[in-house]
Design a protein around this nucleic acid. Structure first.
Lengths: 255, 255
DNA sequence: GGTGCCGCCTCACGCTACGTCAGGGTCAAG
DNA sequence: CTTGACCCTGACGTAGCGTGAGGCGGCACC
């Protein structure tokens, strides 16, 4: 009993489809997808047809159908449209409920943070054109579940508008010194550059307890994400890239 | 051991709160809500304080927090805002994903169902004299190549006659409220008017993803195209013009 | 005092869609 | 012949309860 070119072991199928071996075991146990053959040793052998079926299973799963419904959708395909319509109804209901929950949460959040959170106007006034609300949302998506984000939320919640203005002034002053050092030809890895890097890190620690590894991650954004680079590039072209090198070199000195 | 007036048996609590006895058992077993006392026979006795706690539990549960998180929210209440913010992030993510699923379903449905289109008779029955076939043709000439038109075609393909009837009823009810606000002298730009404008926009979004700029374009039809103005003018002379002003003012507030 | 019914009690298994070991074969390479 | 990667079949764990099973408590009616 050998495998032909058209047959795949369960691990291959898992990798190809982006699922797991356990998931395929499960689909077989509930009668949703059984491999067309087995080797003499009992290994499951999946054919291309099996892969096609799996593809359709995963498609419906993404639409949030439960496995039993998917079985009937694929096997009987009776009243296909009716099933789709029911699912459409369920999802639009959920959409409406979640909208309500989001609104309720927003209300609760604004109630619990009176006085401290900056208004959109204040943010604009303090951060100027650099501030983009969409940006804030994305940041939360990206780091919302990290400890650093949690710390940052906790600390900034206590900041007053005056705090923010002071922080902004300090940051601007520091950035000006960075630009001056860059223009003067200070090279990454030099003592002077290391001092600046440590000062930059201290600035980060206003928001959360960062170490040199995290500092490096932040630095990588300065070359990889245009929005983080912009404030520096506006001061001096090449400054963002140089700053990243400075931070990386300083981090290495601390390993 | 007797019950006082301030104590409730588990069944009473279940009825009062709209949950079940089993749910209350469960909350006790996970340390979320324990009754303040028991009778000599072992019956749970809940106090008003317990009911208050339960109310808050159910509130957070509706916001889709898991029970463990609710426990910390109620017991520690540390970093309350951070929790809310995280939950807000989770929910908006889900919102986005479900929107995608709904769109995919609508596409699939429109592909699988030719024949679901309303007949001319049904259109007449539902929309009454307002419906003019020539109108539909012209609309396609004008917007047929826009993204909004495409979306609208896809979504409406999934609508049943019942959907249309419901939409018509909703629209009529909303228009009546518009007329009432107009008669009451609500002025464009006021909070009340802005709320109505947002609701009007939400109505448009039944058909396609409109932003405030598109909303303005639609509003301009109310003063420039007699056919779009008519349904409003029939409710109250001047209503169409007023509505345009309301929408314009609201759009400006969102620049 | 007996009887009946409703409500309460404590286990304890069931449900979805898998994740995650545990214990033990299979296969190709060195 | 060993090693390591991969496969097999159980079987228990997860969240938030639903749903009995088997037995006691409380109260009204006869």
């Amino acid at each position: 009993m050998h495998r032909t070119d058209d047959e795949y072991l369960i691990g291959d199928v898992a990798r190809l489809s982006g699922t797991t071996v356990r998931t395929l075991h499960h689909y077989e146990s509930v009668g949703l997808l059984a491999p067309s053959a087995r080797t003499s040793a009992g290994y499951r052998l999946y054919t291309r047809d099996d892969l096609d079926r799996l593809t359709r299973i995963l498609y419906y799963r993404d639409l949030d159908f439960d496995l039993e419904t998917i079985t009937t959708l694929l096997d009987e395909s009776d009243d296909h449209v009716g099933q789709l319509r029911r699912q459409h109804g369920l999802l639009t209901d959920r959409l409406a409920r979640i909208r309500v929950m989001v609104a309720a949460l927003e209300k609760e959040m604004s109630a619990h943070m009176n006085g401290n959170e900056l208004t959109a106007e204040q943010k604009l006034e303090i951060f100027g054109a650099d501030y983009d609300p969409a940006y804030e949302v994305e940041a939360e998506q990206r780091w919302g579940d990290t400890e650093a984000w949690r710390q940052s939320q906790e600390r900034t919640a206590a900041f007053t508008p005056d705090d923010w203005r002071r922080i902004k002034a300090d940051t601007d002053a520091f950035n000006a010194r960075l630009a001056a050092a860059f223009a003067a030809g200070v090279s990454p890895g030099s003592d002077e550059a290391d001092r600046l890097a440590e000062e930059h890190l201290a600035g980060l620690r206003t928001y959360y307890d960062a170490d040199h590894a995290m500092h490096r991650q932040v630095a990588s954004l300065y070359t990889d994400d245009e929005r983080y680079a912009r404030p520096y590039e506006e001061l001096a072209p090449g400054l963002a890239t140089w700053l990243r090198a400075v931070i990386d070199a300083n981090a290495e000195h601390h390993d």
